[in-house]
C-alpha cells in the first residue's frame, strides 16, 4: 500500500502555482536588541545620591540579569544555557564543589577556551556559582541586597566586586560567549566602571518596584 498511493495522487496533477504572498514577513527583519551599557557619567543629571547610586546598579543589572550570567547562577542545581535559558543539556548537576558530579565534570566538555567547531563555550574555571549566589528568578533589588551580603556573594567585600565583575576572566567570558550566544551588554570594562561608581557612591539598592 505504501507505494501505490503516490500513483493515485497523479489525479491531482503536478502544476506549480506561484503565489506572491505580499504579507509574508521578511526573514531578516528581526530588530536588534539593545545591547549596550550607559557610562556612569551619563547619570550625572541625577542629583539625589541614593537614587544616583541605585541608578548605577539598575544599569549594571542589565548584565547581572543577562542570560550569560543567570544561566550559571541558577536557582536550582542545574545550569541553564542558550539565549532562551533552557535547561542545560545534557542534564548536569552542580555536585559537591560546583564543578559537576562524578560522572559529569564541567571540565570534561568545557575546555580552557570556546571551541567553535563544537559551539561549546570554555574557560579554565568553568563551574556553577554556589547556591547562595543564585540570581535566577530574583528581582534587581533582591540581587542588589544579595550581592552586598558577604554570606551570599562569595565572601567578597564591596571593593572586591569591582574586580570580580570588571576583571575576572570567567565573568569576562560573558562578553565573548561564542557563536549563537548574544554577549552580555556593553563591555566588561564598562560593567566594571558601573560597579566602581556604584560602590563609591554608597552601593544603594534600587527600590523593589523596579523591574528585574
Amino acid at each position: 500500500m505504501k507505494n501505490r498511493l503516490w500513483i493515485l495522487t497523479g489525479i491531482i496533477g503536478i502544476v506549480l502555482i506561484f503565489i506572491l504572498r505580499a504579507e509574508a514577513k521578511s526573514a531578516s527583519a528581526k530588530p536588534l536588541l539593545e545591547n549596550t551599557l550607559a557610562s556612569p557619567e551619563s547619570f550625572a543629571s541625577i542629583k539625589d545620591p541614593q537614587k544616583l547610586s541605585a541608578a548605577y546598579f539598575t544599569e549594571l543589572s542589565k548584565v547581572l540579569t543577562n542570560q550569560r550570567c543567570v544561566n550559571c547562577h541558577p536557582s536550582g542545581d542545574t545550569p541553564r544555557q542558550g539565549d532562551t535559558r533552557r535547561l542545560h543539556q545534557p542534564l548536569v548537576y552542580r555536585g559537591v564543589d560546583g564543578f559537576g558530579t562524578n560522572s559529569m565534570r564541567c571540565s570534561t566538555c568545557h575546555q580552557s577556551a570556546n571551541f567553535e567547531p563544537g559551539r561549546i563555550p570554555g574557560h579554565p574555571g568553568w563551574h556553577l556559582a554556589p547556591s547562595e549566589m543564585a540570581w535566577e528568578g530574583k528581582t534587581v533589588p533582591e540581587i542588589c541586597e544579595q550581592i552586598k551580603d558577604p554570606q551570599r556573594n562569595g565572601n567578597r567585600t564591596l571593593h572586591d566586586l569591582i574586580d570580580h565583575i570588571g576583571k575576572d576572566t570567567l565573568v569576562g567570558w560573558a562578553w565573548q560567549p561564542g557563536y549563537g550566544r548574544t554577549p552580555a551588554p556593553g563591555t566588561q570594562a564598562q560593567a566594571g566602571a558601573l560597579v566602581e561608581a556604584w560602590v563609591n557612591s554608597g552601593a544603594a539598592c534600587p527600590q523593589q518596584q523596579s523591574s528585574r
Binding site: 570534561t108 567547531p117 563544537g118 559551539r119
Partner: peptide, 13 residues
C-alpha cells in the same frame, strides 16, 4: 579515569 566526549573537544586538547 573519566569519560570525555570527543566531538566538542579539539584533538590538541
Amino acid at each position: 579515569s573519566h569519560t570525555n566526549p570527543t566531538c566538542i573537544v579539539s584533538a590538541a586538547n
